[in-house]
């Protein structure tokens, strides 16, 4: 395909988010020239980190720091295009908080639609089509745009692999954004991070998740103990996040994190489609559930029909013995 693709690069504590790198790698499947846009506190550090992935230009957006990133980024993108910068063929954003906000505002500013929850991109007739899952992952649909404008895509994490195959020095271009108006009246006054131990949920080789079947919040400590023994990240179903047992950052699924570990252990989780969408890509799955008809068993490589309160302590004890 001719032309370029732009990727929204999300800065996470000074480094590009994993999904941003996945999107850059995906873009290289279709075009030579891939550029990034970021609302970062340190564009120099960010551009260094992007070097192995092949980014031509990084549009470094500067604006009042407390602004919500989606407001600033969508404004910057519209401003760049209005100033006559050669428009890209497509903009790829993660289906994240910032990605969604940016796409939503930009789609109104440019009056173009968005294809969301994309899990794959395909080039046909010099255009990009997108695949996404419906009916809880039962079917894949392919969609295409019918307008001539910029293609906007919201892409789910872990849909593409990161590839360090196009190393290149990144040219930084500053973009100043001011006078956004009333849509910029919401300001971040503080940020709080919820401490968690062990490897990161979306990067860990092993994930141990617990659900409502644990019975109560105290029993979640069994999940944490098992996770620790396996050097795994603890995760959760939405049911126990909503119940306040663990923070949202533990949630696996459609509205939480997508994980693709080597091994996923689901304990007391029924296997609702919205949960499975976030972990079905795991290489191996173990499920412990006392209901033999629980849907999670349909995708588990090893299913244990049993009471988590009996199985877990024995499993933990056995693993401790081995250490």
């Amino acid at each position: 395909m001719n032309g370029s693709i732009w990727v929204l690069v999300e800065d996470q504590d000074g480094v590009p988010s994993g999904t941003s790198l996945e999107l850059i790698s995906a873009a290289h499947n279709f075009v030579e020239e891939v550029s990034g846009i970021a609302f970062s506190t340190n564009a120099t550090a960010l551009s260094k980190a992007l070097e192995p992935y092949g980014v031509e230009r990084l549009y470094a957006v500067a604006a009042e720091r407390s602004s919500l990133p989606g407001v600033v980024l969508s404004h910057a993108l519209a401003q760049l295009l209005a100033q006559g910068v050669e428009p890209p063929r497509a903009l790829l954003c993660a289906q994240s908080f910032t990605g969604r906000d940016t796409l939503a505002r930009l789609s109104v500013k440019l009056d173009v639609p968005i294809l969301t929850n994309v899990v794959n991109l395909i080039e046909i007739d010099d255009d990009l089509r997108a695949e996404h899952l419906i009916f809880g992952g039962e079917k894949v649909v392919t969609s295409q745009f019918t307008h001539p404008g910029l293609r906007l895509f919201g892409i789910r994490a872990k849909s593409f692999v990161q590839n360090e195959t196009h190393p290149k020095e990144v040219v930084i271009e500053d973009v100043n954004v001011e006078g956004i108006g009333p849509s910029n009246s919401a300001k971040v006054i503080s940020s709080h991070s919820e401490e968690r131990s062990g490897p990161k949920l979306d990067e860990a080789a092993v994930v141990v998740s617990g659900g409502r079947g644990l019975g109560n919040v105290e029993n979640y400590s069994l999940v944490e103990e098992l996770a620790k023994l396996l050097n795994a990240a603890p995760g959760a179903s939405r049911a126990i996040v909503d119940a306040g047992w663990v923070p949202y950052s533990y949630q696996v699924g459609q509205t939480g994190k997508t994980v693709k570990p080597n091994l996923y252990i689901a304990i007391g989780i029924s296997g609702a489609t919205q949960h499975m969408v976030g972990m079905k890509g795991s290489k191996n799955i173990i499920a412990i559930n006392k209901d033999k008809d629980a849907p999670i068993f349909q995708i588990a490589d090893l299913g244990v029909v049993g009471d988590a309160h009996k199985v877990l302590p024995k499993l933990i004890e056995a693993l401790k013995q081995r250490q």
Partner: peptide, 11 residues
């Protein structure tokens, strides 16, 4: 909600 926890926002 944020990726790592939550932000306090005023508007």
């Amino acid at each position: 909600q944020s990726e790592s926890g939550y932000d306090e926002i005023e508007s």
